[in-house]
Amino acid sequence: MQLSQETLRLLNAFAMRTRRSFYGIRQGSHRSQRRGHGVEFADYRNYELGDNPRYIDWNLFARSDKLLVKRYLEEENVALYIVIDGSRSMTHPSLRAKWDLACHVAAFASYIGLASQDPVTISVLGGPHSPRFWSGKAFGPLSSFLSKAGESLISPDVRDINVPEEARRAATRVSFPGICMVISDFLLPLADVAATIAAFRARNMEVHAVQVLGESDLELEPTFDALTVSDSETGEVRGVALDSGTQEHYSGLLSDHIARVREHCLASQVKFISATASGSPSSVGLDTIRRMGLFV
């Protein structure tokens, strides 16, 4: 995946903004829960033996005759976990646009994170070695990882996965809580959606759900009277009559499902955003990054 200069210029303008603070690994640009020697005052504590006398607030001592030491907020990096749903509904050859968009969104978010020295970990659910991980500090290997993962996943003989289970397995690899982006089409039963999100929330992560839908998910093939559809994950075949009433019915069902997922996310304090894989994945991905609210 090669990013154009224009895309890079736009991405360089973004910075990741967390809603809450985390413990970081090393010094960074995000406010940490850890108290230290930052520039922003946090609180006071009693002076203890061994503390540097430079941090004693002498003015306060003069007023209260107590030795109190100033504490400052530490600024550390924040771990960014990106989880990409690599199930067949995202990686089927005829649905590849969804996977491409998901990769672009993940790449853009990773680039922003890497640019601010934040550790980035990408987990792809699906494929023969699911979940597979990548963690590093350079964008080049990340791009190569995504390309290889795509090649292996889009192969026709790849078996489907249990997304919640894989999500749980991926969550166990999380060492430091941080930002978690779950990129999926979320065309799962609501219980599975909840289980997938809960797996990462259980690790005390700030979860952002990015729903990627294809054009075929929004509207059935409108050319004929009837349609024979096959499930990309199970291969099940079903005949569907495609009159105007059926189309409206399907659109209503899809809207209801998305609304239920959105409500669940809202109740779980998960930021939810939906994107449609139509047009250039680069431009749609940038728009998605912009609408997420995570990057400013």
Partner: peptide
Amino acid sequence: VVEQVVSTLLLL
């Protein structure tokens, strides 16, 4: 010719 692969039959 009308055969379409969809993400899931959950809604269909």
